[in-house]
Each structure stands twice: as structure tokens, then as C-alpha cells.
Design a protein around this nucleic acid. Sequence first.
RNA 1: CGGGGUGUGGCGCAGCGGUAGCGCACCUGCUUUGGGAGCAGGGGGUCGGGAGUUCAAAUCUCCCCACCCCGACCA
Length: 587
Amino acid sequence: MLRLSTLFVRTLREDPADAEVAGHRLLVRGGYIRRAAPGGFTWLPLGWMVYRNVERIVREEMDREGFQEVHFPALLPREPYEISGRWTDYGDNLFRLQDRRGADMLLAPTHEEMFTLLVKDLYSSYKDLPLVIYQIQNKFRDEARPRAGLLRGREFSMKDSYSFDIDDAGLQVNYDKHRAAYMRTFDRLGMPYVIVSAMSGAMGGSASEEFLAPLAVGEDTYVRCTRCDYAANTEAVQVAPPVSPAMADAPPAKVVDTPDTPTIQTLVDLMNGRPDLRHPDRDWTAADTLKNLVVTLRHPDGTTSALAIGVPGDREVDIKRLEAQVSPAEIEPFTEADFAANPHLVKGYIGPESLGEASPSGIRFVVDPRIVDGTRWITGANSAGRHVVDLTAGRDFTADGVIEAAEVHHGDPCPVCGSPLEIARGIEIGHIFQLGRRYAEALGLTVLDQNGKTRVVTMGSYGIGVSRAVGAIAELNCDDKGLVWPREVAPADVHIVATGKATDPQLPAAEALAARCEEAGLRVLLDDRVGVSPGIKFNDAELLGVPTIVVVGRGLADGMVELKDRRSGDKHDVALADVVAQLRDLL
RNA sequence: CGGGGUGUGGCGCAGCGGUAGCGCACCUGCUUUGGGAGCAGGGGGUCGGGAGUUCAAAUCUCCCCACCCCGACCA
């Protein structure tokens, strides 16, 4: 039994100055956690109970699938990470240190290498597979900016598992098992979630999905369909290409003088205001224009190349989406010097006819999926102050490829069903990812198959942020009075408040009730503090957020106590004799 | 790494050249007990650090450091 009279906790009346988001504030005010380092938190007894409940649920759902838990050191030597390339790839986010002999060490940011090497150590036959092993451990990342309490720390707890299979079919099976296990886990944690595709098909990547908790304070932007179940990370949104208009209907392209039209809007206004340029049956809009942006790509080997991106003029190029498409190359602005070096490009009037690998400029030209053959565009004519009208894709120009880099707008059609998409914010709480053979290849994890031939193992990696989940649960389950824990993660099932003086009958009655509750299998938090006013006790009960509150107060004279649901605020009087039975029904 | 902000008792804050304060929390006593009680008494702070200016620095100047927020970055 937890007794508030002796529990190591101090609730705060006022908000801590350094906590911004509601969940974080309440976790600190309720005495669940304390900040101990930038991005590092101490778990106080109540917080540690909640943490362990979350961990237990995650573990139970892993074990249910037959996955096996292992435990690694957090302090690791450089070599494995050197071999996989991540000693350098991880950059500044890796915590590096040296031992007394000057040997490079690191604090593990994640353990792919160690899992892979461990399996390589022990297994060498296809008969040993499939295998799934997992860990629940603290990870260390030197985040540039920790924020929002538990939502982004520099030391944090994560469950991650790895699957090892001989072939893609086996990988798919383990991927699906994790997907199902994660859905069960988040349901039990009382967390709403959205599963979004995390990697664009244009990358040709393997399957990867993120579990996002819908939180306004989250760091990820995603879209979801207002009608069907389509959802995707913004980076991964696929635009449904329109049906190609008939090419034969397209009038010939015509170059026109368009002075003083530095922006899309001024161009559209001029077109609509000039009788000779007006559209026969409607106004031109920005969506009729084709905007061409040139950037420089810096490739990992240090070389650079230019890339031109064509998007409809009513939307900008989304740099994050573009980066996701061109990764691992990095994007740099196209400078004046670059323009000077490319005389075929007229700044502000770049047109498709000067772009493309086969064009005089030789610059690779990729376009938004909306730019299908037969679509007609107003776009730059590669000549200052001039644009071209009715330039028709597939007839007047052909792009080198398609790219998903245009901004996604609220209300864009869903690629699956065509209904409007909505844009929302969330935070990643789980990620399932078909890694494939990258680590197995780099670290030499192979087994012999049935024919005695060497086969590279294929892997999957699956993570749940455990400490982050605690932060997200708090954020998702709170009101202006305090936290409201889902029952399975709550530090107790029932919070019993005894009012009255030390000599009043309420305290012994509450003690007796608490004992009976425990016998009935309920986890009890008893507020047995004496000399504390009822107001403080009620407020603390609401702040701490145990799902059910029982007040042993002035009704006791009539044999009654008050039973209150923390979430709804509903309360009613119950005969003392019936309380335990009613509480058990809540479980 | 850019921009902004803050460092004064456990927490939240005021003070901005002249004896370090307020509220909450804490300790003692008495009263009080259904929504963060009252009275009386009390303990606790090298004012983030260093250097300077000054008769005198929490306060002014310079240099550091730490933390928070926004952005960049980020499984």
C-alpha cells in the first residue's frame, strides 16, 4: 500500500518555470519526475511505478509473440560502429568518450550493430532462424535541443527489437507480428495512435511505418484522410496523378511578353487582365503555372550537381519532402555564381525547355506527379520578361523523372479515395522498419541455407520509445486539474482520501477500507496525512491522477463514502460495505 | 548552429549603486478540518562564475558558464 504520509513525493502548487507543455508540467508538479540534467530526468517513486507499468506492458506484448529479451552494455567500443559506418554517420548526436588508455568509446544511441554481431557470434544455420530478440534500455543521444520533458531527452528508454530471417517472406511475417503487437501495446497503454507510412515509395525503400500519437506539441507533421484510413508522414505523402488530358486538344505553345511579373501572383493578374491572354472560359490561377526551382545537391562523396524541380505554381517546394527524396544528398541553394556558370538559365524565367539531361543545360529535371502528359502550363520562357503559355507536357517538354517534393496542403485529395486530407501534428512513439541486409552485410552476418550456400540474413528493426510513451500518455491524458492515468499505467487503482482530524473516525475507517481493497487485489494509494486540509487532499488526488478516488469523509457517520471517477468527474455516494465490490467491477 | 529570454532560500518571484526581500514550502506552539486554513514565533541565500569600475556592486562594465523557448537538426 502506498501511503502519502510517507511516500517520497512532494507536489508543487505552482508550475515549474522550465516546463512548457502540459504533460511535462503536471508530471513535475505531481512529483513523478524531476529534471536532473539537460534532457535527463530522475524518476521519483510514483513516476517509476508508471514507467515500470508501461515497460511491463511493452514487455508482455513482446513476450506474447515469443520474442526474447536480452541486455547490452550502454558503454561500447568504437569498432562495431566503425564497421557499420555510424561512428562518423551519426555525427554530433553520438556521445563519444575515451577510456583511460585513450581508446574511443561511445554511449549507445541504438544497438543495431550489437544485435547483429551477437547473432553472428552464435548462429550460423538457416535452422536457427527466424529469431527475434529485443531489449528495453536507456539510449544516449546528444540531441541539439532536448525539449518537452520526456518527449525528447538525451537519455531515454527505448524498447527495440530485431528480427533475423533467411528471406523476405520471413521478414514480412515478423514485421506483421510487430505491427499487431504494437497495436495491442498502444491500446493497453490507453494511447490513441495513427499508423503512417514513413518512407516514400519513390525511394524504392522497404516497408516502414511509424506509430504517431496525435499531439499538438509533437514534432512530426502528418496527413490523414478525412474518410478512409490513409495516413502518411508528410515526407511520404504520395500525390495521386490526375488523368492525362487529351494531347490533341492542346493549342500550340505561345511565347508572350509579360513585363513586371516577378511573382506567380503578378503573372496570373497580368494574364487575367490582358484581353489577348485571358483564358476563354475562366480566370487563370496559380495552379495553371509551372514553377521551376533549381537547387544544388551535395552528395556524400563531396561532389555536387544541379537539380531542377517543377511544381504547380500554387505551391512551394517543401524542403523536407525534397530532402527525403534526394537523401543522402544534401540540398544547397543555387547561388548567383551557379547561375553565372549556367548561361542557359535565366533567373526568374527558367523554363522546362532549358532543363533536362538532354537539354543544353544538362540539368536533371524532375517534376511533381501532377504534371502528367497533356497538361498545359504557363511557365518561364528562358528569356527575361517573357513566359510561354500552353506549354504541354509530353509534347513540348519531357521531364527526366517524377518527384514528391511539392507542399502538401490541407484539403488535398487523398491518393487512395480522393477525399480531402487533413494535416495534423503528432509524435513518433513507435517505428517498424524492414531494415533488409544493410547491417548484416556490413557486419558479415550470414548463415548457410538448405543447399549449404552462404546467405546474408535479412533484418527488421522495431522500436517503441518507452520513456517518451510516459510523456505522451501524460500529455494525452490530463486536464486543468492534473493527470488522468489510464488504469493499466496508473500508479494505483484507487486513491483513498481520509478527511478529518487525527482523532476522527475517518482515518481508521479509511485504513480498514484500504486493507480490504488490497485483499481484493486493488492497488491502493492512501492519503493518510494528518493535519492536512481536505482541500489540499482533494487537489492532490486530482493532480496525481489515479483513475478512481474514494473520499472517506463526513458521510461516514451514515456509513457512506464518496466514489469519484477522475476522468469524468462523476461522483456518487456508496455504502461503505459495497465499495470494494464496486471498485473491483471497475478493473 | 542562428534568434529570443532567464539565472536571487526547496519552488515561484520582486529588488536594479547604500543593512538581501515577498508568497508558498519547511520547523515550534496553539487554534482549525469538505476544496491549496488562522495567529504567534523560527531556520534557511558565497544573489550562476570570474575579472573590473566604485568609499560601497545582486544592482554598472567586460568575459565566461548554465538553463529555458522559437528555428535549424532529430529512429
